[in-house]
Design a binder for these strands. Structure first.
Lengths: 228, 228
DNA sequence: TTATCAATTATTGTTAACAATAAGTGTTAA
DNA sequence: TTAACACTTATTGTTAACAATAATTGATAA
């Protein structure tokens, strides 16, 4: 069970991002991490190099490591890539899903709605991401699964920056209808629903007012809609 | 022009793989690399961590870093993923290509056939890969571009392991016809030609007799088709 | 001759100390 | 009061020495 310290750090950072505990732009100091996971700085450095290679973290020379803050253009590229990957995943998942898979996905949806209702945003984000990754697992292509893992991570950061403040970012029942199509084995519909789902998610973004977190100003003065 | 030593090493390793100078399974010793690029081992280690995160290199604890040797299943996953990515790339490239792009691609094809005719395999592989990456550049999606870059790299390793010994692995004129469709702006045909092209490439593989290079036996006794 | 074991060698992993750089703080002068 | 400057502090980058592990070689015994 005990991974190498490097893997532990990478996993912890990714988990934290997936639950929006680490916002875009957050600094990942070497000392801080080596204290936290008590290991030496060499391991921390390797972990950060890994995260940087996955484009989840940015290394600025002589400055340190920071969680990336995706630009609007990058956000667009990421959604385009997600559609390409997830359409393919959907097509292959359609023929592969067992009844346990379907049951597991439905349980996931129940938990997700519960989290949404109770206002537990971190849990909601984690579960939503888990839903998409579970589908990728059913498709059975490790390469697509890993690419999607990276993109869902970056999507979480995008949502943290550009999500429209008001409504929640997923139509209530889209995941439900996706599982319906999966259970029915209707590949074409599954593909279409997946595509639509991602388009809706993207349509819910607002690039006008990025919530520049990890900026003291916002954390002290609040994020009220008034101009500075 | 002078990158960090880490980037230099990463680029050099990737170039070497792209030209099949580094075969699957090759060992990348820390000392060797730090001597070669004269830098300290810390930089080498970070470079190897990056390459490992890209799944181009495998880190075995206490053993060192080795170029990955893709399994048949991985090869299949990689080609499936490539089709998903390159179909999308093709669709978006169709509308974006300038006449300079077309000219540049045609020049690339000329060089490629010349390399094939003269039996310069490293150049042929590099140019073929360059062709696909150039198309990705036209599509203008950095995320897809990076993913494809990783997969073409791994494809080169796959070809080194499983390419049918006889014929060359690309139908002579497929790249030509792809550029024709691109020039005509015919997105649908471009997508179909790209898909076919990748299927032909995959069909040219033979998983029965992997050329287990970086194995002294083969390098000394040759790769004659006789059973050991 | 073959197999097992011990000793040597080479390579990776870990640690700490030091240097270089950037950021923050306080002082001084206009 | 403000701006520029020097100084202090914190953080990253580099290096070398040492420990731990694996591979190789040679020796010994069946």
């Amino acid at each position: 069970m005990s991974d190498s310290p490097e893997d532990t750090i990478v996993a912890a950072v990714l988990d934290a991002i997936a639950e929006q505990r680490l916002p875009a732009g957050a600094k990942l100091g070497e000392q801080t991490l080596s204290d936290l996971f008590d290991c030496n700085r060499a391991n921390v450095r390797r972990a950060l190099a890994s995260l940087a290679a996955q484009h989840v973290v940015e290394l600025r020379p002589n400055r340190g490591a920071f969680v990336i803050t995706p630009s609007p253009k990058e956000a667009q590229d990421i959604f385009q890539a997600r559609r390409a990957l997830e359409r393919t995943i959907a097509r292959h998942a359609a023929g592969n899903a067992s009844s346990e898979d379907v049951a597991c996905l439905r349980r996931n949806i129940v938990e997700e709605t519960r989290a949404r209702r109770s206002g537990d945003k971190p849990a909601e984000l984690r579960l939503s991401r888990q839903f998409h990754m579970y589908l990728a697992g059913i498709a059975g292509n490790k390469v697509l699964e890993r690419f999607l893992s990276e993109l869902t991570m970056r999507t979480t950061l995008i949502l943290g920056l550009y999500a429209r403040s008001g409504g929640s970012h997923c139509a209530e029942d889209e995941h439900d209808r996706i599982v319906d199509a999966l259970e029915a084995g209707d590949a074409e519909q599954l593909v279409e629903l997946t595509d639509e789902h991602l388009r809706h998610l993207e349509a819910g973004l607002n690039f006008r007012s990025p919530k520049s977190s990890s900026n003291l100003r916002d954390q002290l003065l609040g994020t009220a809609g008034i101009r500075p």
